[in-house]
Computed example of a mutant assay.
Amino acid sequence: MKKTILTSAVLSLFMISCSDDTNSSASMENRSASKDFKLFTTSNTTGRVSVTDLNTSTTSSFTVASTDADGAYYFNDSDEFILASRSNNKIELYYDVSEAVAANAASLSYGTSSTSDFNNAREIAVAGDKIVVTQDQNAANGNTNKLLVYQRTATGISLLNSYTVNFKTWGIHLDGNTLYAVADLTSDLVVFENFFANADGAITATKRVTIEGLVRTHGITYANRSNTMVLSDVGSATSDSDGGLIIIKGFTDVLAETPNMGTIAMKKQIRIYGAATSLGNPVDVAYDNFTKTIYVAERLNGGGKLLTFDLPQTNGNYAPTSSRAEAGVSSVYLLRE
């Protein structure tokens, strides 16, 4: 049975970030027995979504209305999942996810969608009742890069704001009112403080910095409690072996000491690169600070893989701790409650 979409006031009490962590003093036993510890993926090619229960290592796969999707988020309080549809140019919402898993259903139940306000979506980020979608430039959208803000209400998903930006969009992450974004085709990280206070139209970043040694940014996630930033590098779009991951510990301190248009040096980074990594086009990342695990949507190597890595302490050519074929995998979202 379809569940009622909760009001934004209730939502704000329950929402957590895919890279934020709660109960950081919990024992490892409690951490491994988290009530909800799930990983979600979308695909650009299969029209399927996967849901993995990380407590049991059980994966379920479902068809959805979108054959090409980028960006994912799960509302644990209402058991609803959203994705950014690149085939339908809408945010699509699916309900009763847990029931679908329990019933071994073939598909997720379609609930509602936003209006069609974007073309060529690349990522979703959520804070409270606000949903942000990135639009990457292409001919169909007039080569316009956008950040669009929607509000999830009791009656649906409504467009609030539409912003144009002067960089090519891909991954984003929200930490409260601060939006972190990558500038595709560059090695740059862009920061918007007080992001939701902007009026419609062109907006300017608070700060932009270059990540030394990074070729082309795509994936981004930030763990507030451990102050850890994780970025992915896809390198050349045609190579399935030149990708990497960059971890920046003490991130906000590193960012604060780096001037606008300055560079975060390689000595401030921990880097995972090399032939053993299986990283070619790592398009999205999620990070669990409790288990110190990085989850990667690797789009090109082997046709698509979900990779996991232990958080390293030093640079290295590390092999993934696990690898699962996931055709066309385009985004990864982690929930831990």
Score class of each variant (00 low, 15 high):
Asp188Ile: 00
Lys90Asp: 05
Thr186Arg: 06
Ser98Phe: 03
Ala72Phe: 05
Ala125Gln: 08
Thr134Gly: 07
Asn194Lys: 13
Ala140Gln: 15
Phe192Ala: 06
Val126Gln: 10
Asp129Pro: 10
Glu80Leu: 01
Thr178Pro: 00
Arg208Glu: 06
Phe81Gly: 04
Lys90Gly: 03
Phe196Val: 10
Ala105Ser: 14
Val190Met: 07
Ile157Thr: 11
Ile131Leu: 06
Gly111Leu: 11
Asp175Ile: 00
Phe118Thr: 04
Ala121Pro: 10
Thr144Glu: 14
Thr169His: 04
Asp96Trp: 01
Leu108Pro: 13
Asn166Cys: 03
Thr153Gln: 13
Gly71Ser: 11
Thr204Asp: 11
Phe196Met: 12
Lys168Ile: 04
Arg86Val: 01
Phe167Trp: 12
Gly201Cys: 14
Tyr95Lys: 05
Tyr163Thr: 00
Glu99Leu: 02
Tyr94Arg: 12
Val133Pro: 02
Ala199Thr: 15
Phe196Gln: 12
Ala140Glu: 14
Tyr74Lys: 07
Ser114Met: 02
Leu179Ala: 05
Asn177Lys: 09
Tyr73Gln: 08
Thr164Met: 03
Ile203Phe: 13
Ser114His: 09
Ser78Ala: 06
Gly71Phe: 01
Ile172His: 08
Ala199Asn: 15
Phe192Trp: 10
Ala127Cys: 10
Glu193Asn: 15
Gln137Gly: 11
Asp129Phe: 00
Ala72Met: 03
Asp184Gln: 14
Ser107Gly: 13
Thr155Met: 07
Phe75Lys: 07
Trp170Gly: 03
Asn198Ser: 15
